[in-house]
C-alpha cells in the first residue's frame, strides 16, 4: 500500500497531537528526562536556553548535534530543535538527524534577513514565531505547520506573549466577521496571503495550531495564555532557571491542562521556590529585542 509522507495533514496533525500540552526547552539528557517525567508533550533540544543566549551575546546557532542526539536517545516523546531563520542547511541537518519538529526561531541569530525558509520543501514539519496575523499567515503560506507567539524570549516576562496572542485572536475575529469582498484589502494592509485569510474566514481559526511562547515563567502564566486562546505552551528558560525544575515543570503542565481551575492553580503554585528573575521589557534596547527578528 502506498504511503504519502510529509503531507499537510501529517505535518499539521503532529502539532494537533500536542494540543493542551507543554513543550519544554532542555539542554541535556538529564533535563529531557525531567521534562518527560513531568508530562511534557515534547522537548526542544538546545545548547543554551534563551535567557543564557541573551546573557552570552554573540551569534547563537543551531545546537551541537551531539546534544540533539543525546536528548533524542533519552526520551520517547517528540524532540524539536531550533535552526536559524533562513538557514537551509541547519534545517536539513536537523531533518537528516530525525528531529521531529524544527523551530525556525528568532531566538537564534538570523542567517537570512530577507527570506524565511520555504518549509514546504521539507518532510519534517516546522513551527515559526509570529506577532500578528500577517506574520502567522506568511509563515503558514511558506509551509509552517504550527505557529507560536514570539513573545520576548528569555525574559520571564509574559507581557509580549500576551500582546501577540491578543493581537492574533482579535485579528482572526476581524477576518471571521468580515465580508469576503473586504478580505483582499485586509490582505494588502496586513501583508497576509489572501488564500490563508479565506481559509481563516471559513474555519474560524488559523489552519494550524497556535501555541504561546516567549516569557512564560509561572503556572499562572501558562494558564493565562491558555485562557487567551493558546492551544498549548512552550516554556523556555522558565523551568530550568527556577529553583526546583521538576516541581516547576509538573506545576506548569497541570496549570495548562486545568487552566480554568483557579483553586488548583493556587495549590500547585505553593512552595515552588523562586521563578526565574525576569527582565522588564522597557529596559531592553531595540537591538536586544528578539521578536524584531524575521518579518
Amino acid at each position: 500500500m502506498e504511503r504519502q509522507v510529509g503531507t499537510d495533514r501529517v505535518k499539521r496533525g503532529m502539532a494537533e497531537m500536542q494540543k493542551g500540552g507543554v513543550i519544554m526547552d532542555v539542554v541535556n539528557a538529564e533535563q529531557a528526562k525531567i521534562a518527560e517525567e513531568a508530562g511534557a508533550v515534547a522537548v526542544m533540544a538546545l545548547e543554551r536556553v534563551p535567557s543564557d543566549i541573551r546573557a552570552a551575546g554573540g551569534v547563537a546557532r543551531m545546537a551541537d548535534p551531539t546534544i540533539v542526539e543525546e536528548v533524542t536517545n533519552a526520551v520517547t516523546i517528540p524532540v524539536m530543535a531550533k535552526c536559524r531563520i533562513g538557514h537551509i542547511v541547519e534545517a536539513r541537518v536537523l531533518e537528516a538527524m530525525g528531529v521531529d519538529y524544527i523551530d525556525e526561531s528568532e531566538v537564534l541569530t538570523p542567517a537570512d534577513e530577507v527570506y524565511h525558509l520555504y518549509k514546504r520543501d521539507f518532510t519534517v514539519p516546522f513551527v515559526c514565531g509570529a506577532r500578528d496575523i500577517g506574520e502567522a499567515t506568511r509563515r503558514i503560506a511558506e509551509g509552517a505547520s504550527m505557529i507560536r507567539t514570539k513573545g520576548e524570549p528569555g525574559t520571564g516576562n509574559i507581557v509580549e506573549a500576551v500582546r501577540h496572542m491578543r493581537m492574533m485572536q482579535s485579528q482572526i475575529n476581524e477576518v471571521v466577521n468580515m465580508s469576503v469582498d473586504e478580505i483582499m484589502t485586509y490582505a494588502k494592509n496586513t501583508g497576509s496571503p489572501f488564500e490563508v485569510l479565506l481559509n481563516i474566514k471559513e474555519n474560524g481559526k488559523l489552519p494550524v495550531v497556535n501555541f504561546a511562547a516567549g516569557g512564560v515563567a509561572t503556572p499562572a502564566d501558562a494558564a493565562l495564555m491558555m485562557q487567551l486562546g493558546a492551544d498549548g505552551v512552550f516554556v523556555g528558560s522558565g523551568i530550568f532557571k527556577s529553583d526546583n525544575p521538576a516541581k516547576f515543570a509538573r506545576a506548569i503542565v497541570e496549570a495548562t491542562t486545568h487552566y480554568q481551575d483557579y483553586a488548583l492553580i493556587a495549590e500547585l503554585s505553593k512552595d515552588l521556590g523562586a521563578a526565574m528573575k525576569g527582565i522588564e521589557i522597557s529596559t531592553l534596547e531595540q537591538k536586544d529585542r528578539m521578536q524584531e527578528r524575521g518579518w
Binding site: M1, E2, R3, Q4, V5, G6, T7, R9, V10, G13, M14, M17, P78, E95, G98, V99, D100, Y101, T123, V124, P125
Partner: peptide
C-alpha cells in the same frame, strides 16, 4: 513506523467499515 519524518497517510481497507478508509499515521 519511526520518527515524525516517517509519518504518512494512506488509504486502507477496514473490515466491516470500508475499503478506502482515509488513514493518517503520526509517530
Amino acid at each position: 513506523f519511526g520518527r515524525q519524518r516517517e509519518s504518512f497517510e494512506a488509504i486502507l481497507p477496514v473490515k466491516g467499515i470500508g475499503d478506502d478508509i482515509d488513514a493518517v499515521f503520526i509517530r
